[in-house]
Simulated assay, not measured.
Amino acid sequence: MPTVEAVRVDPDDAPEARGRPVLAAGHRVILALAPAVLYLAVRELGLLALRLMAARWDKDVSKALTSWDGQWFLGIAEGGYADVPTWLVDAFGRRTAETPLAFFPGYPTLVRWVDGLPGVPAVGAAFAVSLVSGVVCAYGLARLGSRVSGGSQRAGLVLVVLFAASPMAVALSMAYSEATFCALAAWSLVGVVERRWLLAGVCCAAAGLVRPTAAALVVAVCAAAAVAVWRRRDDWRAWVGGLVAPLGLLGYLAYVAVRTGRWDGWFAVQRHGWDSRFDGGAATARFALAILGEPRSVLELATVWFLVAALALVVLSARRGLEWPLVVYGVGVLAMDLGSNGLMNSKARLLLPAFTLLVPVAVALARRRPGTAVAVLVGASVFSAWFGAYAITAWQYAI
Rank of each mutant, 00 (worst) to 15 (best):
L326R: 08
V378I: 15
V315H: 06
A216T: 12
V7G: 10
V221Y: 04
V170F: 01
N345V: 15
V135Y: 00
G379W: 03
V111L: 00
V210L: 00
G248V: 11
S146T: 10
W113R: 03
A318K: 12
F355N: 09
M344H: 13
V136F: 02
L313I: 11
F73V: 12
E300K: 09
A200F: 02
S173W: 01
S276D: 15
T284L: 01
T3H: 12
V161Q: 03
Y255A: 14
V315L: 02
D234L: 03
W324K: 14
L117Q: 10
V308P: 00
V210P: 00
D279A: 12
C204E: 05
S67Y: 06
R296E: 11
V114L: 04
A223T: 15
L50N: 13
L250N: 12
A206W: 07
Q396D: 15
A312W: 08
G242Y: 02
A36L: 00
W187H: 08
L157S: 07
V123E: 09
A282I: 13
E5G: 09
G46A: 10
R211D: 06
A285D: 09
Q396Y: 12
H27G: 15
H272I: 11
W386C: 10
D83C: 01
V244N: 06
L377C: 03
G201N: 06
A171P: 01
V202L: 03
D69V: 12
G242K: 00
L326K: 07
G251Y: 04
D69C: 04
L172Q: 13
D115A: 15
D90K: 11
R95M: 05
L47R: 11
R349E: 05
F104V: 12
L326M: 01
A49I: 11
Q71G: 14
A318N: 09
P325C: 04
W386V: 13
W263I: 15
M174R: 10
D235I: 08
G280Y: 03
S381M: 02
A183F: 03
A205W: 04
V193T: 13
T3V: 13
F163K: 05
G150V: 12
A185R: 14
L326G: 03
L307P: 03
C137W: 04
I392K: 02
Y390W: 04
P15Q: 04
L162R: 10
L74V: 14
A34Q: 03
A364G: 05
Q71A: 11
P353I: 05
L31C: 07
V132R: 07
R286N: 15
A185M: 12
S62F: 07
V158F: 05
R271C: 06
D58S: 14
A228D: 14
D12I: 11
G371E: 03
V42F: 00
A238E: 13
A302F: 01
A224K: 09
W68L: 07
P85V: 05
M336T: 12
Q71F: 02
G242N: 04
D90C: 07
F387P: 06
T180K: 02
G379V: 05
E78S: 13
V89T: 15
R51Y: 05
